[in-house]
Each structure stands twice: as C-alpha cells, then as structure tokens.
Amino acid sequence: MQNKRVHLVLLIIVIIVFIWSAIKPVSYYSWVLEVSPAVASLAVFLFLYKKFRLTTLSYTIIAFVTILMFIGGHYIYSNVPLFDWLKDTWDLKRNHYDRFGHFMKGMIAIVIREILLRKTLLYKGGWLNGIVISMVLAIAALYEIVEWLFAMLAKGGRVSKDFLGTQGDIWDTQWDMFLSFAGSIIALLLLTKMHDQLVKREIGLNPNKMKKEEQE
C-alpha cells in the first residue's frame, strides 16, 4: 500500500510538471516533438501498472527522466535558464542541459535491467549488464536517428534546429550517445545493490534465481 502511495505521488508530480510545461512553451511545435516520447512511454507504463508493476526505484527514474524531457520541451533544451546561468557563470561555450539530460537518461538502464530480470532467463551478472548497456545505447542511437530523419524531412528551419539542438557542435550526436552510455554504466554501478533489494522486497523475487512463473 505504501509503495502505491509513493507511485501515486510520483505520477501527480509528473502531471503537474506536464501541465506547467504545456503553458506557453517557447515553441509548441518543439514542445510536441520533445514531450511526445515521454508521454507515450508514460502511457505504456501506466497501462501495464496492474499487470506488470515495477519497483519504486524504476518508477522514480521514469518520473525523473520524464520531468527532464518536459522541462526541455518547455524551454527548448538549448535555452533552459539554469544552464544558461551556468554557461554565463563558468564561461562555457554552450548550454549543457541537453548533455545533462542524455547522461541522466542513462539511468533507464535500471528499468531495462528489471524487465530483463523478470521476463527473460537472464540472471544478474556480466551478460545482463552488457545487454542492458547495449539496449541503452540502441535507444540513444534510435533517438538520434529520429532527430536526423525529422531534420531531413523538415528541410531545416527553426523548429528543426531547436529539435536537433546541436548548438553548432559537429560531434553533438556522438556526445549524446556517449553520455547515455556513461550514464547507464554509472547507474548500474551505483544502483544495482539497491535495485536488487527492492526487487526482493517489493516484487518478492531473488535476482540470482527468478521464479519460473515470472519468466512465462
């Protein structure tokens, strides 16, 4: 019951940020492009909540990453005020919110890890971690491909430029994928032990030996 309350609070916070994000964003076209993946993912997890409930850690990560995307959609990633302030204060060459966002998106490694532990024959260990990291990289690459395809179809323009968010860096795509990769490794290093404990306590499963019925 307590876990459900925490999950409800997380959902309410996400909804509040979503509503705020939708109120007078810098560009509604850019806003739709940026928040759509987060809204679609959130809808899937809500639909599966009763049938396949995740741990509180996974839902916290989902909520946090979703909020980051809503903030980026509202301001446009390259114009988030706090990171503009950091840019001016530290004399940086660019607004780094997008890179911060891609790094934090690497935390979805924990969500992917939980799904694989519970729905495949994989146990905790090197193979599991390797596959998780590879999947994070695949998602990061897919996102960059979507951005590229949109830019090609839109044939330039302000919205395309804002959505790509390269800020003049020819290596921006590579940086984004690398930071998601690095974020996934750090998330696994720091959060695996906590995740295993929550899987045992909240789901009732041993990550070293999954119950047969959970794999069917």
Rank of each mutant, 00 (worst) to 15 (best):
V26L: 15
V80H: 06
M1Y: 11
A22T: 14
E34A: 02
D98Q: 04
K193G: 14
S27N: 13
L189K: 08
Q174P: 00
A38G: 05
A138Q: 07
I139F: 15
S41A: 15
I131T: 06
V80S: 09
W171V: 12
K4T: 12
K209F: 09
A141T: 10
L179C: 08
Y77V: 03
N79I: 03
F52R: 13
S21H: 02
S41I: 15
V111T: 14
G106M: 03
I108H: 04
Y75Q: 07
S58W: 04
V39Y: 00
K87P: 01
H195D: 12
I110Q: 06
L149V: 14
V17G: 03
A140S: 15
L42M: 09
A22V: 10
I61W: 07
A187L: 05
A22R: 12
I185Y: 04
V9G: 01
D176E: 07
K161T: 15
H195W: 09
F47W: 05
G73L: 04
I71K: 04
K87Y: 01
R94P: 07
M135V: 08
L153G: 08
G183P: 09
V65N: 03
V146W: 08
Y28A: 11
T60H: 00
F70H: 08
Y123V: 15
V199T: 07
E202A: 04
Y59K: 05
L191H: 14
V14H: 05
R113Y: 13
G157A: 01
L128T: 03
M194D: 07
T56A: 12
W148K: 12
K24Y: 13
